[in-house]
Amino acid sequence: MQFTKRAFLASGAAAATTLALPRRGWTQTVQQVGTMEITTLSDGNLMLPAEFIFGPMPQDELAGVLAPFDMMPDQALTPPCNITLLRHGDNVVLFDCGAGFAFQDSAGRLGDALAAAGIDPLDVTHVVVTHGHPDHIWGMLDDFDEPLFYNAEHLMGETEFTYWMDDATVNSIGEERASFAVGAKRRLEMMEGNMTLFADGAEVLPGVTARMTPGHTPGHMSFVIADGNDALMVVGDAIGNHHVAFARPAWESGSDQDLAMGAETRTALLDQIAADNMTLIGFHLPNGGIGTAERDGEGYRFVPSA
């Protein structure tokens, strides 16, 4: 079977494509923010065709931008999936909950990571959602279609929730992403009775403030986690990789639903993060996803935390 963008976007086909692939091992990276402990846990990795990200980019310039990363424009991509875990007082908070069992076989490893960290899913008090794509929310339900984080309050931006719950989305999102819409709506309907919605700028939990960062999806949210003078930002997929997203943030990425808005959001975020010397956590960034952005020529470079 040829590994194409269409094959990836059709979840069933994507699972079939990756059945024989090895699973990534569990990893964790820890960062302290004041009295808050931040840990990133591995949900495995995705398998993406190059065109899923690189398709709309200037092809005559792309090879030169990728060369420092030992990458080629036609190279299949295997981005990691980093789930952020916040422990503060009695709160055990997950930012997103992974792909679960039904998306790609190379992902859905959060259960292993939680077990290695000594956390039972029933210990989780809150699940805070950046956006409704499969690798971020399909892990809400277990393989019996029951809520996996049964005791947790689930929180999602109102704009994002409304988008995925709208019956019209499956017909407007495009044929290749229609399965995303079906899967998201089914899971959000199951969780609707335990879902708290919030707006841009809301303090969703003590020390956690939502920031609208649209483009990747219409209501994508990032989150600033702060305690005293310490702060970091969970950026989800607003900054979706460590190569072109940093080196050429203004280039449109095929992974974004609104390509122009995604590029505008990404550029503004990196400008702020670099200017403020703020730590960030990216869902698909390497080395646990925690690091900083430094100016580098026309763009930036990702510097992982030690």
Rank of each mutant, 00 (worst) to 15 (best):
E192A: 15
L122Y: 05
A293I: 08
C97Q: 01
N194R: 15
A168K: 11
T27D: 13
G254V: 06
L114V: 04
I119C: 12
P147N: 03
P249T: 06
S255F: 12
H242L: 02
H284V: 08
A231C: 10
R109K: 12
P214L: 11
G215V: 00
V128Q: 06
P68I: 10
T78G: 13
D123A: 13
R266G: 02
G254R: 01
N91A: 15
T39F: 00
F302K: 01
L122A: 15
D120I: 04
I281R: 01
Q75A: 13
A20S: 15
L285Q: 05
E175Y: 07
V204F: 04
E61Y: 01
L94I: 09
V204P: 03
T17G: 04
A113E: 04
A306V: 13
L141V: 04
A268E: 15
V33F: 01
G201F: 07
L21W: 09
A76E: 14
A268Y: 05
D105V: 10
F103N: 13
M278G: 05
G299K: 02
G64C: 08
Q272L: 10
V234M: 07
M57S: 11
G157Y: 08
D142P: 00
I53Q: 13
T84N: 05
G44W: 01
N229Q: 14
G55D: 15
P206H: 11
F223A: 03
C81Q: 08
H243F: 11
V129R: 01
A115N: 12
E189K: 12
P80H: 03
F223S: 04
Q104N: 06
D258W: 03
L77I: 14
D120R: 11
P147F: 01
R295D: 10
H154V: 15
I290K: 08
T4C: 11
P58Y: 07
P73Q: 10
A102T: 10
H243W: 10
Y163L: 05
E203G: 06
A107D: 11
C81P: 00
W251A: 03
L155P: 02
N241H: 12
M190P: 00
T292L: 08
H126C: 04
A226I: 00
F198H: 14
P206C: 13
G288W: 02
F95I: 15
T35C: 00
